[in-house]
Design a protein around this nucleic acid. Sequence first.
DNA 1: ACATTAATTGTGT
DNA 2: ACACAATTAATGT
Length: 211
Amino acid sequence: MVKNGVIQTTFGKYFEKELIDDIIDSAIFVEFKEGDLLIDYNQYVSNIPLLIDGAIKILREDYDAGELLLYVLERGDSCAVTMSCCMGSTKSEIRAIAEKDGMVAMVPSTKMEEWIRKYQTWRVFVLDSYQNRFNELLSAVDNIAFKHMDERLMDYLEEFARINKSDVIQKTHQEIANELNTSRVVVSRLLKALENEGKISLGRNSITLNH
DNA sequence: ACATTAATTGTGT
DNA sequence: ACACAATTAATGT
């Protein structure tokens, strides 16, 4: 099957052959398209997702109505938050939405314990994954606590330019505002200011980074 | 080609 | 934050 090779190329650098084979045996491959809702709040998660390709946004809902982008997963990543859900069978605290078309390998959470005992590389992978998510979470907190909205916006734009490998970001001001948990008007004004500074160019449904 | 409508973006208070 | 104006895209006739 073509998909076997995909696992090998994406996770081969982490896992030994036996584990790769185990993954291929027990994983279900799921394709997704941009905008798909992959996990929602309070949903029970019984699979460990291994991201083969594409990008997934991880969002947290606030007490009243706001949403906030926590971080973005890319190929080779997994989501530690869902891993902890798997082990304790607790509800999801986050929402996952596809940012870019791609595919995940879904491993039944029942395999988790077995593999942790069996494979050194799996333990390392899980711990690294936790470490990485934790660091990203910290920088997300730093952003909110210490940075002004104009910096956060610029960081946001650069992040998505990197993910899409393009200087053109096709999003509405409203979408951006939702993910940064601010109002559309604020985003519009800051974008306008950035345009006047010559850092970006604005169009309908598109923002282009200049350099 | 033109008019109508909805969605997105811009600006003043 | 709110209201409204201006601009652009989409759709129907």
